[in-house]
Amino acid sequence: MTTPEILERFDITAITLYRWQIKKQGNRALFPKVKIQSRPNHYLRQEVDDWEAAL
C-alpha cells in the first residue's frame, strides 16, 4: 500500500499518519513501518490489515 492509499483508507491527513508512525508503545511503533522508502512510501498490506484488526 502506498501513503496515498493509507490516507484514503483511513480518511486521515499526512500529519495524522506521521503521528501514528512516531507514536510508540514501549520501544515499538504502533503503526507498521515503511517497507520501501520512496515517493510515495510503501507499506505491506497485510501488516496494515493486521494493525487495523487489532484496533
Rank of each mutant, 00 (worst) to 15 (best):
K33D: 14
A29S: 15
A29M: 13
D11W: 06
W20M: 10
D50N: 14
P4E: 03
Q25Y: 10
L30W: 04
I6A: 00
V48F: 02
I22E: 09
I6E: 01
E47C: 07
Y43W: 10
L7P: 08
Y43Q: 00
F10P: 02
E47P: 05
L55N: 13
L17C: 07
R19M: 08
Y18C: 08
R9Y: 07
I15Q: 12
T2D: 03
T2H: 02
W20A: 06
P32G: 11
I12P: 01
D11N: 15
P40V: 00
R28W: 10
L55K: 15
D49E: 15
R9F: 02
K33L: 13
R9A: 09
N27Y: 10
D50R: 14
T3Y: 02
M1L: 06
R28S: 14
W20D: 04
E47H: 11
E8S: 14
R28N: 14
P4G: 06
E52W: 15
L55P: 06
M1N: 00
E52C: 10
R9D: 01
G26N: 09
R9V: 00
R45G: 03
R45V: 10
Q37S: 08
Y18I: 05
A53W: 11
W20R: 03
A14S: 13
I6L: 01
L44P: 01
A29C: 13
L17P: 00
N41C: 06
P4T: 00
L17Q: 03
T13D: 11
Q37E: 13
N27I: 08
T13E: 10
E5H: 03
D11Y: 10
I15T: 12
A14R: 14
R45I: 07
L7Y: 03
G26R: 09
K33A: 15
T2Y: 02
N41A: 12
Q46C: 04
Q46S: 14
F10M: 06
N27V: 09
T16P: 00
L30M: 14
K33R: 15
I12A: 08
D11H: 13
E8W: 03
W51K: 09
E5V: 01
Q25I: 14
E47M: 08
E8L: 07
A14L: 11
W20K: 06
L17K: 07
T2C: 05
Q21W: 04
K23P: 04
Y43M: 06
K24G: 05
L55T: 09
L30G: 12
L55W: 13
K24Y: 08
R28V: 13
M1Y: 01
E47N: 12
S38V: 04
A54N: 15
K23G: 10
K24F: 08
R39E: 05
P4Q: 04
V48K: 03
P4N: 07
D11T: 13
N41W: 01
I15P: 00
L7D: 03
A29N: 15
P32W: 09
I22F: 03
T13Y: 07
V34R: 04
E5K: 07
S38G: 15
A54I: 09
R19V: 02
E52F: 12
M1G: 05
H42N: 00
L17M: 05
E5Q: 13
E52P: 09
L55Q: 15
L17S: 04
Y18P: 01
Q25G: 11
W20N: 06
L30V: 15
Q46Y: 05
I36W: 04
Q37C: 05
R39T: 09
I12F: 08
K33Y: 06
S38P: 01
K35Q: 12
D49R: 03
A14V: 12
Y43T: 02
V48D: 00
L30K: 13
G26D: 09
